[in-house]
């Protein structure tokens, strides 16, 4: 990379070799966050714009800290509405930002494909920080980073992803990335929360969480959003918790050293019980920690000058 990858729009077009380079580079940055001085001069003079059209605390903060620890100038823009009828068009927003010569635009948007649209209209590198129901590539990278740190490898691991697969960009990016690195991915959800054409991802589909978790190395739970009730996709969070929620008894069916993941924000007591989320097998906060290192790696690989080393 360092010039070969201009944007990070999704995992779909990312070869395994590039994925591994992102992960290996993140290892280099991982230590920076625990130093006494948590800053390296790598991206001094570079401008990173966090352009968020959807509310986000975790991801936006993670990108902001990642940029700052690399000494980039980081600007956060939160746009409350992405509706053309109410505000400026996305094209005009991008043209205005483009006129200020950013090096990287990190974008989150409720419309699938919005980062791709922006990438067509800017010279800056574009990082997809979550677009609609499409992809969330840095989340998949930080999840893979966390798994690799915990398990030493990814190939041949059994990874169970359970939750709202149909609407989840995290599920898509993770299914793509983990299968590409050789993991065996299982997905589990009521049929209302499974998308059409799931077989193309090479994942195994389960109707019940027990068999899905059986012998798993990694159990990844996804958030259930309240609007899924009004859309007649699930009848109640109570029933969901009882049939698809991860509790201690359910987790006991996984491998003894299985880890539990969640991209957040969690609904404790719905898709995951508090004692599992806070328990010894949980790596949920490790994921958050990994997020900063992975995003530093992404910003570095997209924005650093050719030949620029990561830490200097």
């Amino acid at each position: 990379m360092n010039g070969s990858v201009r944007h990070l729009l999704g995992i779909e077009d990312l070869p395994a070799r590039d994925i591994v380079q992102f992960l290996d580079t993140a290892e280099v940055f991982f230590g920076v966050s625990t130093r006494r001085v948590r800053k390296v001069p790598t991206l001094r003079g570079k401008t990173v714009i966090n352009l968020f059209f959807e509310a986000s605390t975790r991801t936006r903060t993670s990108f902001e800290i990642a940029g700052k620890r690399l000494s980039a100038d980081v600007v956060n823009i939160s746009v409350s509405t992405s509706s053309v009828s109410k505000g400026e068009t996305l094209l005009d927003t991008v043209k205005n930002l483009e006129a200020m010569h950013p090096d990287v635009i990190v974008v989150r948007h409720s419309a699938s494909g919005a980062p791709h649209f922006i990438a067509r209209h800017t010279h800056a590198g574009v990082v997809n920080a979550g677009d609609g129901m499409h992809e969330h590539p840095t989340q998949a990278l930080l999840d893979a980073f966390t798994i690799r740190r915990a398990k030493g490898h990814i190939a041949d691991l059994v990874v169970t992803i359970s939750g709202d697969i149909a609407h989840s960009r995290v599920a898509r990016s993770n299914a793509l990335l983990l299968t590409r690195l050789g993991a065996k991915v299982r997905v589990c959800a009521p049929r209302t929360l499974l998308p059409a054409g799931l077989e193309q991802y090479g994942v195994e589909v389960f109707d019940a969480l027990g068999p899905a978790v059986e012998g798993a190395d990694v159990v990844m739970m996804l958030r259930i959003q309240h609007e899924r009730l009004t859309e007649a996709l699930i009848p109640s969070t109570r029933e969901y918790a009882r049939t698809f929620g991860l509790n201690r008894a359910m987790l006991a069916r996984a491998k003894p050293d299985a880890i539990v993941m969640h991209p957040g924000p969690m609904n404790r007591g719905v898709e995951i019980d508090a004692d599992v989320a806070d328990g010894p097998r949980s790596v949920i906060l490790d994921q958050v920690e990994a997020g900063v290192a992975v995003r530093m790696a992404v910003l570095y690989l997209l924005a650093a000058e050719a030949g620029q080393s990561p830490l200097a």
Binding site: S112, G113, G132, M133, R172, P195, A196, G197
Partner: peptide, 18 residues
């Protein structure tokens, strides 16, 4: 719905029209 519901709509994360 934004496009036909199927493999491609899932890949693109667009709501499908079955």
């Amino acid at each position: 719905a934004q496009m036909h519901e199927g493999r491609v709509s899932t890949r693109l994360g667009l709501k499908g029209w079955p």
